[in-house]
Design a protein around this nucleic acid. Sequence first.
DNA 1: ACCCTTGCGTTCAATGGCTGAACGCGTATG
DNA 2: CATACGCGTTCAGCCATTGAACGCAAGGGT
Lengths: 108, 108
Amino acid sequence: MSDERHLNALRLLEEKPEMTQRELAAALGVSVGAANYCLKALVEKGWVKLENFQRSKTKARYLYVLTPSGLAGKARLTTAFLKRKLQEHERLSAEIRLLQEEAQRSNL
Amino acid sequence: MSDERHLNALRLLEEKPEMTQRELAAALGVSVGAANYCLKALVEKGWVKLENFQRSKTKARYLYVLTPSGLAGKARLTTAFLKRKLQEHERLSAEIRLLQEEAQRSNL
DNA sequence: ACCCTTGCGTTCAATGGCTGAACGCGTATG
DNA sequence: CATACGCGTTCAGCCATTGAACGCAAGGGT
């Protein structure tokens, strides 16, 4: 389930690898710590590689680059989520109908 | 939002107050401990009242009865969720479109 | 009567994910 | 040079959740 977080991060980073952890956090709607946590997981899986950016050898700033297996993983997650989301979409339609009935029955 | 959990519990209990915590847990798709946790919160809010079944022929110990403020709370949650779910439904449609594009772009 | 199974609610340690606030360290700006 | 800023990192604390126990009561079988 936290795969959704990972997929979203991958999407953002693929499009803009020079993103800051704070930017990423904001885009994901979570705290900086959470973004870092997520990023660390992606790096440990070998899906994202840290490259130094800004010519100093320090780790002041990174590029977060998707590795080949990161791209593959992203593709896999994408199809998996597409499937899930379609189901969820259907479920949601049913639930909305139900809620509307119930709201009406309670005179709202 | 754990309010969704609460709303679902309220719906189930209104329809069937003689429900067991284990039945409730199964219906909610969570563990027994979680159902208990949820139930306790509802009781502390005064939305659900425990009534005992003395010498009933069922094996349940309690009836989980919605109080008047429980009913009001449920109605409030229902409209709030209806609104949220409609938004989510729309968001989901957009996301699905996006995922489909992306899946295609990756030749899946 | 007796045990023994079953079903009930309750409890708790452990886990995982998250927040918010710090921290140290480079770098840009004055 | 100083100092404010932006970066990644870390951590205590919180909260929801799980899974496994627990004690208790009721029934059934022998």
